[in-house]
Design a protein around this nucleic acid. Structure first.
Length: 493
RNA sequence: GGCGCAUUCGUCCAGUGGUUAUGACGCAAGGUUCUCAACCUUGAAACAGGGGUUCAAUUCCCCUAUGCGCUACCA
């Protein structure tokens, strides 16, 4: 039997980092087992679901390259079918009509639920549970509104074997007669999920641990329907640094996938970071290609304890998890150059720094430039910010760099243009030749080589840090190097 | 309140009935270099607590603590 898994987000916001990981795990499991990865949008909560959210989630998945197989299922489309099934259970006596008026909730719903739960009541205590069919039908015919609840047996327990958490059981006395269909005729989550999973022939339900207790309710529905239940695998949660819930409201943009895309992260790097949150192959290796992940991923290496997504909202340097940043930098500087080039191209295009020659006459030179500067970059954004001087004449000078490398050594104001004059005669504008010439120049003029190079760095790139200057000279080329060495712009700032 | 799940460095993790308890991020120190956020080397840093079981527990069991989840006509 081919495995079929699904990622089933509810479109009430952008793609959350935790959801993204759930999607990733589902995807990897599907591909590992040669199965299908399906997508279902759980938009049954009409009040909160938005099309914009759906789009944002789809964008996030697309960016992560978690492509789904088959058509997207919109849960709301299946509502009639869910209703039918609830009615069927009613008909079979496995569910009953509850005529209790709906309790309107407002304000702090969580607190209200907690408060009510404290009352410790008998889960089977419902005046309409044992109403005769005739009485129930009569009331319904009279137009009295009702919800449909599953009739959970007086005694017994549900059990299932979770692929991550192991054997689970729950006594019926802990499970209320859950509502299947609202009094307005809309199906509820637990019913909808089970019906759709059956319909989509899902073999493995891989989702967040917050559903672990709910699963017992769903098992009950499977049993009432007489359908074999799928394998369940619950995933540990991803928590905020204070070990609390990671939410948009409290933590803002750090939890959104689009933030990473827009900050110049590489999908491959972020995926790699994400997969290590709650899973490991049990080895010391940490950098994996997608193919390696597909090959190694398995449910039994998923952890049981929650992971903390570590960041400090008050510190720009640690705005997101350090390891994610490191992972991205690692990818930027070590991934195959040919894979990086298109990404840099897209970044330069969006920063209006792209020139068509980079793809054509200047291709080799462009690639060499990218290869040189990527060594100390962290994100794709760095190519258009820090790396701007390599692609444009219009770049800024860092004041600290000017102070440290130029103003502190006033004679450089004449020495650097002088150096330009000397370099004018160099035809072989490459690292080694330049080194010989410039070292000779430094000695002759009594200037320290390092001071000369640092000054040049600021003049040529606007910065105080960067790759070896001899390589920068070579990469930038003679013409630009000479012009910038002679320029007085930075000196006048 | 009830029920459930969890607990190894600050964070992500490895691991075992007998180990100097692994690796990574971050941090610190040193080094290389023309600079550095890169690179190299080194260092500090953890088995929640208490009981058992055992010749021996970080590892198995129980209790406590803590955290998280569920307890809706939300998903």
């Amino acid at each position: 039997m081919t495995t079929r898994v699904r990622f089933a987000p509810s479109p009430t916001g952008y793609l959350h980092i935790g959801s993204a990981r759930t999607a990733l795990f589902n995807y990897l499991f599907a591909k590992h087992t040669g199965g299908k990865f399906l997508l279902r949008i759980e938009d049954t909560d009409v009040q909160r679901s938005t099309e914009e959210s759906t789009r944002s989630i789809l964008d996030g998945l697309k960016w992560l390259e978690l492509e789904h197989d088959e058509e997207i299922v919109y849960q709301s489309d299946n509502a009639p079918r869910h209703r039918e099934i609830a009615l069927k259970l009613l008909d079979e006596g496995k569910a009953y009509r509850d005529f209790t008026p709906k309790e309107e909730r407002s304000g702090d719903v969580k607190a209200a639920i907690q408060e009510r739960a404290r009352e410790q009541k008998d889960m089977r205590d419902n005046p309409f549970r044992d109403l005769s069919k005739a009485e129930s039908d009569a009331k319904a015919d009279a137009g009295e509104p009702f919800a449909i609840r599953l009739k959970v047996a007086e005694s017994g327990k549900t059990t299932f074997e979770d692929a991550v958490y192991g054997f689970q059981e729950r006594d019926f006395s802990e499970i209320e007669d859950l509502v299947l269909l609202r009094s307005d005729g809309h199906p509820l989550y637990n019913l909808a999920v089970v019906c759709d999973d059956i319909e989509m022939r899902i073999t493995h339900v891989i989702r967040g641990q917050d559903h672990l207790t709910n699963t017992h309710k769903q098992v009950l529905i499977y049993e009432a329907l007489g359908v074999e239940k799928p394998t369940f695998a619950h995933l540990p949660l991803i928590l905020a640094p204070n070990k609390g819930k990671l939410s948009k409201r409290k933590h803002g943009e750090v939890v959104s996938m689009t933030t990473y895309r827009d900050s110049g992260f590489l999908a491959a790097a972020f995926r790699n970071f994400l997969v290590l949150l709650g899973w490991s192959a049990g080895e010391e290796k940490e950098i994996y290609t997608m193919d390696e992940l597909i090959g190694k991923f398995s449910l039994d290496h998923i952890h049981k304890n929650n992971a903390v997504f570590n960041f400090d909202a008050n510190d720009p340097k640690h705005w997101t998890d350090d390891k994610a940043i490191w992972m991205n930098a690692e990818y930027v500087r070590t991934m195959p150059l040919e894979d990086l080039i298109p990404l840099v191209k897209a970044e330069l295009k969006s920063a209006k720094l792209w020139r068509d020659e980079y793809d054509d006459d200047d291709k080799t030179h462009f690639e060499k430039t990218v290869d040189l500067i990527r060594e100390r970059f962290f994100t794709l954004k760095d190519f258009s910010n820090q790396g701007r001087a390599f692609f444009s004449e219009d770049f800024d000078f860092d004041n600290a760099a000017i102070a440290k490398n130029l103003k502190k050594f006033p004679d450089l104001q004449t020495r650097l243009p002088e150096l330009a004059g000397t370099l004018e005669t160099v035809d072989d504008f490459t690292h080694d030749t330049l080194e010989t010439v410039i070292k000779g120049f430094a000695e002759e003029k009594g200037v320290k080589f390092g001071v000369l190079m640092n000054g040049a760095r600021t003049l040529l790139t606007g910065l105080a840090v960067g790759p070896s200057m001899l390589s920068v000279f070579e990469t930038l080329g003679k013409e630009k190097t000479l012009r910038r060495l002679k320029s007085q712009v930075a000196w006048n700032q």
